[in-house]
Design a protein around this nucleic acid. Structure first.
Lengths: 218, 218
DNA sequence: CGAGAAATTATTCAAGTGTATAACAAGGTG
DNA sequence: CACCTTGTTATACACTTGAATAATTTCTCG
């Protein structure tokens, strides 16, 4: 009747491991089905650790949600920043990042939807969502502005904001439906679709986002 | 120690009442928190009735999801059909229906997201979702085609389909973000935004969807 | 290498879960 | 108005849940 042998992990490593196990469980079993026992089994530890590291299950789940939201914007943002200098290519990379792996993932979409469903009624989730949404929108606005300017289009604050709201809607919608409905149309369609639609939405000359070559001004 | 007095309801009425109570509970408490006891208390009956009318809790929740999905497309579809004859106005009404009450509702968005989050992992939900999505997409395609034709734009099956996918993404995204983020921008913005964005997405002449007057061809 | 602090496990508990079964009462039918 | 079907309530049960507590093991630091 020996006890389970175990290994002490650093605070950050254990917390991360628990949050990731939480996300896997929430995706597979839903918020309800993600019980403390399942989560900790998935992480290879016993249930007591949740209390030790997060105080309560709710706290753990809240942290896991924030962790996911951060991952999503960080991935898209970093891909945009990678192509430095060219504003058009930055916007292109940002859009593409949301229509390809790792962000385009059925598990991530499921998680995201599950949490979004609680935003309205649970204050903790609402805060996390608002923060993430504001960040995403600001990033998108900043990417749009120089592109509009480059093409001689109106690029005042209010115009940029409107475009950002619409484009964000398009991204979210395509991202979600695209991940879930891979049966109805190949998901290879999504990258070209978002570039074409983004172009039209912003009123850019046809091909300016789609064509790989450097921006060709009119 | 008298028993609770009760009233016998018709099969349809009781089923509907139970499904609506289910939706209210799922919205407020999540799929996990929507327990049989809470649902039946909300409906003003006792827990045994779930077994009697639906066999099991899962069955009840599945039916409630299908009921919700039906409501959403029916509302938008019927609003489109109301303005008979003019294809442009039909499309306009369809878009507007998704950006105004009763479809634009935080509760409905929460419900929708909650269910969507389970689609990937629960076969019953997947079937309901796929069916609803296909229906919505087909409806949108049918509305788009004559509008494109009217403006002398390419309106082959594949073009219509691409447009429908993108437009559906935009609708879903705006619908969801718009309902949840009413703090960041007034939701009065959404109707005009969807008309303007829809216009651009389809390549229609500016103002053809937004202006109330009858379609002014170029 | 030994002791003390802290991480981890093991056990326990009360509250709540879905569902099965039995008792009851409402309302149509004769 | 009495009967009988069945919609509805009431009760019971086995099981799971999140959390609290106590017992142990691991690792660090002197």
């Amino acid at each position: 009747m020996s006890r389970k042998t175990f290994q002490r992990l650093s605070l950050d490593a254990r917390r991360k491991s628990l949050m990731e196990a939480t996300l896997r469980c929430v995706a597979r079993y839903g918020l309800s089905g993600a019980t403390v026992r399942r989560i900790t089994e998935e992480a290879g530890v016993t249930a007591g650790l949740v209390r030790h590291y997060f105080g309560s299950k709710d706290e753990l789940i809240g942290n896991a949600y924030a962790y996911l939201a951060g991952q999503l914007t960080a991935e898209a943002g970093s891909r945009a920043k990678q192509s430095e200098g060219d504003p058009v290519d930055q916007l292109r990379q940002f859009l593409l990042a949301n229509m390809t792996t790792p962000n385009l993932s059925e598990e991530k979409v499921s998680l995201w939807a599950t949490f979004i469903g609680r935003v309205r009624y649970e204050a903790a989730f609402a805060d996390i969502h608002r923060e993430g949404y504001r960040e995403f929108l600001a990033l998108l606005e900043a990417l749009i502005e120089p592109v509009l300017a480059l093409h001689g289009l109106p690029h005042g604050a209010s115009a940029c904001r409107r475009h950002a709201i619409a484009l964000n809607g398009l991204i979210d919608g395509l991202w979600m439906e695209g991940s879930l409905n891979s049966g109805l149309y190949g998901r290879a369609l999504l990258p070209e679709l978002i570039l074409e639609a983004g172009e039209r939405l912003l009123g850019l000359p046809a091909g300016s986002l789609q064509d790989q070559k450097k921006t060709q001004d009119s």
